[in-house]
Amino acid sequence: MKSPRIYNRIHPTGNMFLYSFSFYLFSTIAVLSALMVISAKNSVHSVLFLILSFVNSSALFVLLGAEFLAMILVVVYVGAVAVLFLFVVMMLDINFIKLREGFLQYLPFGVLLGAVLLLELSMIFFSNRLSKVTLVEFSTKPIFSDFENTKDLGNVLYTEYFYLFQLSGLILLVAMIGSIVLTLRDRSGVKKQIIYDQVNVDTVNYIEKKKVKLREGTNV
């Protein structure tokens, strides 16, 4: 598992310190900001911390040499999802204090769930130590190439997986059609700008000359 390029670039030169230093730096910030997401009083702040956490995780992906995942994480999660959250939080007037009212009531349930998860994790940990059975027993191991993984993905995405790529495009088209169908409505009484008519306005039809008599005025 040593092939990713960036890891190689740092590692063989013996600069292990820089690698571990950046790993611990980014992961500490990621974990801390994740904690802040759930503990911040102001919900706008917690969304901002969420974005910080995403950015740091994408930096961790870069360290692993998975730069495509890092880009996707920034584009999709930071660019779309988090901004959407931010919009929702700022536009809707949700009283988060009220949402937290039942916290103590649900605490035992949450603790139970956490305990079960912890138990499961520890079981996996110990059973792996005991029986040495790995998940990818039958898998053909991924072949690491010398290119960046963006290039690798691009190479197969538009050749081998071309049909599937087109199909996913069609799915997105259907999603677009669907959202337009379900939300677009023809409202009556909307004053629309019709540029064609505006351009075609003629002085003959729209401007009327009137003689105004002195001291009498005229009706418009």
């Binding site: 049909y163 199909l167 799915i171 259907v174 059609i177 669907g178 169908v181 409505r185």
Partner: peptide, 30 residues
């Protein structure tokens, strides 16, 4: 697509394309 699929990926994409259109159709009468 999903009837002819011979792969888990094409199967899933077929199912999604089919059902996404069905969801919209079910709610079409706004």
């Amino acid at each position: 697509v999903l009837i002819g699929s011979n792969n888990l990926m094409s199967m899933y994409l077929g199912i999604e394309l089919q059902s996404l259109a069905l969801y919209v159709l079910a709610a079409i009468r706004r």
